[in-house]
Design a binder for these strands. Structure first.
Lengths: 142, 142
DNA sequence: TCTCGTTGTAACCGAAGCTGTTACAGCGAG
DNA sequence: CTCGCTGTAACAGCTTCGGTTACAACGAGA
């Protein structure tokens, strides 16, 4: 379980909220979401907490508490979900400074930095092509 | 040091080999490469070992041993380097099977799998736009 | 055939991240 | 005031990664 499943958990939770909304149940508790994703409720709360900070979901306290979508599912691109839950970038530069007496060591960091920025943008652009509504639609037709 | 710097190390090593070749020194030892990247020589050997398996570099044993590029640097796109050294994909699906009694749990895995495949292809397409020769050129002009 | 420098790996350590779990304070509708 | 759920801290277990040491394998040259 090395690779990140955070985006998967967040998308699953949002998709489940979208389906519940379509069925007339706006509010779901983290236990209900956790039962579908099949992870611990605390994981769901951590994930939905990130999404709340990004204003993708709202939370209700007190009796009848739970989570609900803050936007229509068609207006939630996966790139927004990625920005909300994903931390460090895909590739890292050197963790120890390269040898600056070597011409390559001096100039390679800005060169690679530009490449990695382009990769990150391409990744977000690809994720932006799909919305939560798309994921829900494709999940139901399977 | 969470994120992967494996691609960075491999590209740095190949770029350094390319510059050495241009200066008339075809063969470099892993100690020489490690001195520029500023990492342990074993890390370099592990990385160059991956690149050798992908036929991007050749190795010479015995006296005057070391590594040399197996292709002109202009014909080594970073996507090939990525394929050679990078292991698991960027995103992971659920590590525990989602609840199959939920409609979302049943259909979301193929839906997300398609999205992640598209992201992976976009990432490789972006990396393919840059070659080792490009990285060397941009490093020297900095 | 012997020497010697380098490659190629295996084994282990420490640090860091992610999931999973328990525990508990905070909140608010009723 | 009660009660259910949120929000978060703290800790354990697992995995990955870089770092390091150690050693067998290899081959050009003497």
């Amino acid at each position: 379980m090395a690779a990140n499943s955070r985006l998967t958990v967040a998308v699953h939770a949002l998709t489940w909220l979208a389906l519940a909304h379509r069925r007339g149940r706006d509010v779901l508790t983290s236990d209900e979401v956790a039962a579908s994703v099949n992870v611990n409720p605390v994981i769901v709360r951590r994930s939905l907490g990130d999404l709340r900070r990004a204003a993708l979901v709202s939370v209700r306290h007190g009796t009848g508490a739970g989570w609900l979508l803050a936007r229509p599912p068609g207006e939630i691109p996966l790139s927004d979900v990625y920005d909300a839950v994903e931390g460090p970038p895909v590739f890292a530069l050197h963790h120890t400074e390269p040898n600056l007496e070597c011409p390559v060591g001096r100039g390679i960091r800005p060169a690679l930095s530009g490449v990695y920025t382009g990769v990150h943008q391409a990744l977000r652009r690809e994720l932006a092509r799909t919305s939560i509504a798309d994921v829900l639609h494709r999940s139901l037709e399977a």
